[in-house]
Amino acid sequence: MAQEKFIEVQHSSKIYNEGQENEVRANDDISFDIYKGELTIIVGASGAGKSTLLNILGGMDFNTHGKVIVNGNNISEYDERGRTGYRRKEIGFVFQFYNLIENLTAMENVEIASQLSDNPLDAVEALKQVSLDKRKDNFPAQMSGGEQQRVSIARAMAKNPGLLLADEPTGALDYHTGKQVLQVFQDYVRETGKNAIIVTHNGMIKPMADHVIEIFDGKVKSDTRNDNPTPIADLEW
């Protein structure tokens, strides 16, 4: 089937101290395409450069060589302000340690993001999608880790972004909670037809993705598509 390209990464490198003795190549000539509506997993050992790649895709960092085209725009040409605008309109981000604002309720944590979007989801609706609408008036400290992570996902989704990015979203969660959280991502992609990219070091969750990119030592080691993703309930790790 003819797939529409959503993201094109072309010979992208992130090189620190280039040309010097202590040169570090965090990303080294990476290229791949991501089609519209894919759930993508980028997998690799810690230090492989997968987080750098995700940060570049999310407009939080920039590459030093190559092109990154998202939804037709070459974001590697953006300046700081351009990247901020890009994050604001296009990206929903989920962190390993949730990073909810402690002094805001679940609902307000979602609202603070939806304030930024031209076309936001209703905050209660977003919380409903992560099954937390009943906890909307709770503060982060009153919720478990998994609940907090789901609020964090609701916050990312509330902006109604074209691309949902998650950095080790299950890293701080137990097995069952981790599964719940992954389910939310899968549902999001299936229901909205939008893209999500999850970065993880846990290779065991690869089968749930439509597309798996393996990074090793700053380079793409493998780039495979999976036409029959496994339902999350069947995953074991």
């Binding site: 999310g58 939080m60 302000r81 901020t84 605008g85 890009y86 994050r87 604001r88 309109k89 990206i91 981000f93 990073n99 604002i101 402690e102 603070i112 993001a113 930024l116 916050r155 902006k159």
Partner: peptide, 14 residues
């Protein structure tokens, strides 16, 4: 700092 960084990541302008 964390809170402010979160806002930055969310796309708040400086």
């Amino acid at each position: 700092i964390k809170e402010l960084s979160t806002l930055k990541v969310l796309g708040f302008y400086p």
